[in-house]
Design a protein around this nucleic acid. Structure first.
Lengths: 223, 223
DNA sequence: CCTCATTTCAAACACATGTTTAAAACAGGA
DNA sequence: TCCTGTTTTAAACATGTGTTTGAAATGAGG
């Protein structure tokens, strides 16, 4: 309160707040500075005064809301280094889904994360270094724990891709999901269900497909 | 030849050809009629003369290239109604991937298909009726064949989503894939490998997760 | 060769949108 | 109160882009 809310009273912060929501909702290109400033209740020229240009504002939004997202949904909440890979995978998928499917400011960075993958902007390099590559690395290490660290890299990449793909789908393809369920957002229970499905689906697939193929039964099968 | 190539000598058809490529590459919004007309080598005003407006051109492109795509990569090539669901799934995934990852005019509709899901335009309704819903229905019937027709609909939707998601990923997330493999297109061999992975991954996942669940009867979705 | 409908073109128009500008409002200190 | 630097504002500006327009080119029929 003392810092977060109070800091959103001056123009720069109000713009940041409005921009976070609108960029997340409509993407960098579709979002107009006029709409952002209208929502912030300030004059259009203030984004140039405070952030240089529209792109500067976008970068400021990214760095500002990254913290919020990660501190709310840490990528491995509730697990430690010694946890079995099944637990780690479940934690990863859950955290990832809540970060991109949640509502409010804690989800804005996640939504921008997905947007940047689907339609990169000039901030793509920054996003890769700060968020995309770390996420993929973490997931790939979890995958390695499931299929065995001696599995060839190409196979691990395919598995990692399959898991990320399933998560991204529920955000990037929400147009067709909206058609089916009639809403454009998920309840917490639905997100949990989706997380469970993706975890279980992927875990069993990896075990049967790749783990078994190598050592044929030497690996653990709990869960 | 008599019809296809010859028809691309007049202005309208040259525009259609150029628009197919540019819309597929850049999407409806980013694509400019000036760029399309420049590539077609005609005056800007001709898209309005022949197609009414930019949107009319887009619709014409969709209906025109849909045939091309489907006749080149039929959704169940090489299988018939009596084939086992595994074969059907493999055929579906292969066909789907080639339609969206291939090169040249046969892939343009597939790429527009993906774009329309990621960022719908006014043509979304048409796309849903003519392509998206048929694809999902076909895949869901295949899924039903794998997990059993008495599986509850929600579970089948989750599995269908997991499969579609993996396919869409390789088109919609090509920005990060390009970062990894250094190219922005796939060879035929790579597409075949991806198709094999997705098929096997999904098949085993569905068998272990849900087919088994039915026979043992007790497994359920936990939180 | 002339006529007229169709097609094509260069130019202009309309509008949205990012940015700049010059003046006004404001805030803190002497 | 006055001064000065900062912040905010309304208006104008620059540019990209879809569309329209009026004239020129084209081509089939007589």
């Amino acid at each position: 309160m003392s810092l977060h809310k109070a800091s959103f009273t001056d123009a720069g912060s109000r713009i940041l707040e409005a921009a976070g929501e609108i960029f997340a909702e409509e993407g960098f290109r579709r979002a107009t500075v006029r709409k952002i400033c209208a929502r912030a209740g300030v004059n259009v020229s203030l984004v140039n005064y405070h952030f240089g240009d529209k792109e500067g504002l976008y970068l400021a939004v990214l760095t500002h809301f990254r913290q919020r997202s990660l501190e709310k949904h840490p990528p491995n909440l509730g697990v430690d280094e010694s946890s079995p890979p099944e637990e780690k995978l479940r934690a990863f998928v859950r955290s990832f889904l809540f970060r991109i499917l949640g509502q409010g400011e804690f989800s804005w960075f996640g939504k921008l994360f997905v947007r940047e993958i689907m339609e990169p902007t000039k901030a793509f390099d920054v996003m890769v270094d700060e968020a995309i590559r770390p996420s993929y690395s973490l997931l790939m290490s979890i995958v390695a724990g499931v299929v065995g660290h001696d599995t060839d890299e190409f196979t691990m990449r395919l598995c990692t891709a399959s898991i990320v793909a399933q998560c991204l789908y529920y955000r990037s393809s929400r147009s067709v999901i909206t058609r089916i369920i009639g809403r454009d957002h998920f309840t917490i229970e639905e997100i949990e269900q989706i997380a469970s499905h993706i975890t279980r689906f992927s875990l069993e697939a990896m075990r049967v497909c790749y783990d078994a193929e190598k050592t044929t039964g030497s690996r653990n099968r709990e869960g």
